[in-house]
Simulated scan of single mutants.
Amino acid sequence: MVPPTNVIRQGWRVLESSEGRYWATRERPFSLAAEKAGAFRTVDANTRDELAGLIATQENIAAKVDAAASVALEELGVVITREERRLAVLRDTHPGWRIVYLPEITASWWAVRAKLTPAQRDAGVVPSLARRSGEELAAALALQDEIVHSIP
């Protein structure tokens, strides 16, 4: 892979392979409902225009599903907090981590990894993370995933 190219859409990281193929990964996970409806967090294409179209499609799927889910839950009288949604998405996106939300403490978002291999430890993967917000934890977990995926 070559270094990231300019932005096609805010919130997505775009890379161009050494063979000229384009890849994009959404910086933040979609909701669980959007993912189950077919919104992909990572897409690839032969051209930048095709990639931009695929990104727009993923965002449209997510927007429609999230709007419908919100209305349905409201009609049922179910209130799901932003933190509960974030926790569900984080757990679904990072199954190798045990993730908890403890609002009564300052660093209220925690993730603990069950086992680390020596190669993971040497590469910089950490056994636990604590952050002040779900967004900060999501970013830290994404970084840990990048490290894990870079290990030969």
Results as ranks from 00 to 15, higher is better:
K115I: 04
Q10F: 01
Q120R: 11
R113F: 00
R13C: 08
A69P: 04
S31W: 06
L73R: 15
V65I: 09
K115R: 14
Y22L: 00
R85T: 07
T93A: 13
S31Q: 09
R91F: 01
T47L: 00
I80E: 11
R9T: 07
D66R: 12
A69R: 15
V112K: 15
A123Q: 05
L73W: 10
A68I: 00
E75Y: 07
L116F: 01
I80F: 10
A62K: 06
Q120M: 03
V78I: 10
T42I: 02
V79E: 09
A34S: 06
A107N: 11
V100I: 09
A39P: 08
E83T: 03
R48N: 01
N60G: 11
Y101G: 02
V71R: 11
S18A: 09
A24P: 00
R113N: 03
A72T: 04
G38E: 06
A107W: 08
I80C: 10
L102T: 13
W109R: 15
L54E: 10
A114Q: 10
N6A: 13
V79R: 13
A107G: 07
A72D: 05
L15T: 09
A63T: 11
T25Q: 07
A123F: 02
T93N: 11
W109C: 13
E74K: 14
T117G: 06
E19V: 08
A52K: 15
T117Q: 06
E83I: 00
I99M: 02
A69D: 10
H94K: 03
R28M: 15
T117V: 03
T81L: 01
S18Y: 02
F30Q: 05
V7Y: 05
E74R: 14
E75K: 15
D49V: 08
T117H: 07
A56Y: 09
R13Q: 14
V112R: 15
V100R: 15
A67V: 09
A114M: 05
E104R: 14
T25F: 00
T106D: 13
T106A: 14
L54F: 09
F30D: 05
A52E: 06
S31P: 08
W110L: 12
I80D: 02
R13L: 12
L32N: 08
S31D: 09
R86M: 12
A67L: 12
V43G: 00
D44E: 12
F40M: 15
Q10S: 07
I55A: 11
V78D: 05
L116N: 04
G77D: 01
E59S: 07
L15C: 09
L87H: 14
T81P: 01
A68Y: 01
A56L: 15
V126H: 03
V71I: 04
P118C: 02
D66F: 02
K115T: 07
G124A: 10
H94T: 00
R113V: 00
R98Q: 13
A34K: 06
G124D: 06
E104N: 11
K115L: 05
G11W: 03
P29A: 02
L51E: 04
A68F: 00
R28K: 15
R41N: 05
L90T: 01
W110S: 11
L116Q: 02
R86V: 09
T25H: 03
I80T: 13
E16V: 09
R9G: 05
